[in-house]
Amino acid sequence: MRIPGYWRNTQFFYRLAGWKCVHCGAFHHYKPVVCKRCGSREFAQAELPSSGKLITYTIVRSPPRGFELFAPYAIGLIELEDGTRILSQLTDFKENELKDEIKVEAVFRRVRINGDQGIIEYGYKFRPALRRS
């Protein structure tokens, strides 16, 4: 079962919340023992910005197991407002909207459905911002 791994990461999956190194600013999904960038041991809770711009994307038409129902779907590289780059599924777009560094915003969606009996895994995806201009 993947439940403990999913549950430990819900803060990040649900609202991009994690831990920022007090010394160098590196963002970690979970609270590490030492900063992976500078070795510091001091961290503060932080949330990444929920909007940014789309840098590039690819459409997945032959999905891995468990994602068949969602195909075709898009994976985008997004630059958040603070400069952090993040990979995310894109949702609720018309394909002709995915261009010109379109403004995107995080939404809360179903990411994986484990059959009829397993848990529903939720998490962030990005969609074209409602206020795009």
Binding site: L69, F70, T91, V107, F108, R109, R110, V111, I120, Y122
Partner: peptide
């Protein structure tokens, strides 16, 4: 609702 939406995801969007 989109294929990745349900009552919980929409509740979250409205709550935000």
């Amino acid at each position: 609702a989109g294929i990745d939406e349900d009552a919980a995801t929409m509740a979250v969007e409205a709550a935000r």
